[in-house]
């Protein structure tokens, strides 16, 4: 297990380094002279030359890369052209909101997707199966931003059940300030017993999280269904049946256990996918997170910010993959002992 962990860590570090280099390349793809963009349109040639030197653009590419990597490692992710603040500060202040949204979506995905997949497998090719399969196709093929608009219109606009946008009620926050414990507003409100804020954060989170969860629900349901159906023919399932377990227990207590690992492995992929899906959802709900930041930065070509978001999300995604693999190894004795 230790050897496995070490190997897996090394690989992740290597990939992370690769991503840093990739973002460097992306930053250099910007058409025109980066120094011109930095110095502004009215800058004189001398000013531009000075900026080039300042930014190190006059030096060989490999030195620039090493500098860039060093900067990233030291936490110097550049200054946002749009907000004029260090990119990393911007990102870290917005990350908890996005993380909360994605994790909520993932949680809903598991809570709904796993039972739905089991239901479909239990009634293979019968009505529940057909319904779950169709719903999964629909869930996976709906453009999230469109689903967001639909739900926003219906629940917030028509029924007025839930707030239209934002992450919490500003007046409420003034009245009941939120203590920072984990950084995730929902969790913080919960652990500090800040009930009014908890309700406000929850209300604001519900719709976006539901939208973000559409994809995880669909994919998890499909995967659970497929993997349970795969196992149903196996001897150990026959064996469990011959021990007198009812079909519900056969599926729910034995067969589904074999879906845990595939679902867990999928979780990293879904996490990454939902993370960027949440970008589109944030744009619709005007929810202050990484996505809104990325979208705003992209439209004004704020390169340090775009590169920063890419880097941060990729690192999160790499970390998620790493964690999933390690948990997987811990759960699955066949891997751990290899």
């Amino acid at each position: 297990m230790i050897a496995y962990t070490a190997r897996r860590l090394g690989l992740s570090a290597l990939v992370a380094l690769g991503v840093v280099v990739l973002t460097f390349v992306i930053a250099r793809l910007v058409p025109g002279d980066p120094a011109a963009g930095w110095a502004g349109p009215r800058a004189s040639p001398e000013e531009r030359a000075r900026v080039r030197e300042e930014l190190g653009l006059d030096r060989p590419t490999h030195e620039q890369i090493i500098d860039y990597v060093g900067g990233v490692l030291r936490g110097d992710w550049g200054i946002s052209v749009r907000t004029h603040r260090p990119v990393l500060d911007d990102l870290l202040s917005l990350l908890p909101n996005t993380l909360q949204l994605v994790l909520a979506g993932l949680l809903i995905g598991l809570l709904v997707g796993v039972p739905a997949g089991l239901l479909a497998a239990r009634w293979h090719n019968r009505l529940p199966d057909v319904l779950v399969r169709s719903a999964a196709i629909v869930g996976a093929s709906m453009p999230v931003f469109w689903l967001a608009l639909l739900l926003q219109t219906f629940f917030a606009g028509q029924l007025r059940l839930l707030p239209v946008a934002g992450s919490w009620d500003a007046d409420m926050l003034a009245q009941y300030p939120l203590a920072k414990v984990t950084g995730l507003p929902l969790v913080d409100a919960l652990v500090t017993g800040n009930w009014p804020m908890l309700a406000s954060v929850f209300d604001h989170l519900l719709l976006p999280a539901l939208v973000v969860s559409a994809y995880p629900v669909a994919v998890i349901a499909r995967l659970v269904r497929a993997s349970v159906l795969d196992t149903l023919g196996e001897t150990h399932i026959q064996m469990v049946r011959s021990l007198g377990f009812a079909e519900r227990a056969v599926l729910g207590r034995f067969a589904v256990r074999l879906s845990w690992n595939p679902v867990l492995q999928l979780c990293a992929l879904i996490f990454g996918y939902s993370l960027v899906n949440s970008f589109l959802v944030e744009a619709v709900f005007n929810y202050p997170g990484l996505g809104r930041y990325a979208a705003n930065s992209a439209t004004v070509l704020d390169v340090p910010a775009i590169v920063g978001v890419t880097l941060l999300v990729a690192l999160l995604y790499i970390a998620a993959n790493l964690i999933v693999d390690l948990v997987h190894a811990a759960l699955d004795p066949r891997i751990r002992l290899r």
Binding site: E234, H236, M239, S242, L243, R257, L258, R334
Partner: peptide, 13 residues
């Protein structure tokens, strides 16, 4: 039941 293939007779996880 005592199944034919002992290898597959028990849930692997």
């Amino acid at each position: 039941l005592i199944p034919q293939s002992p290898a597959g007779a028990f849930n692997p996880v």
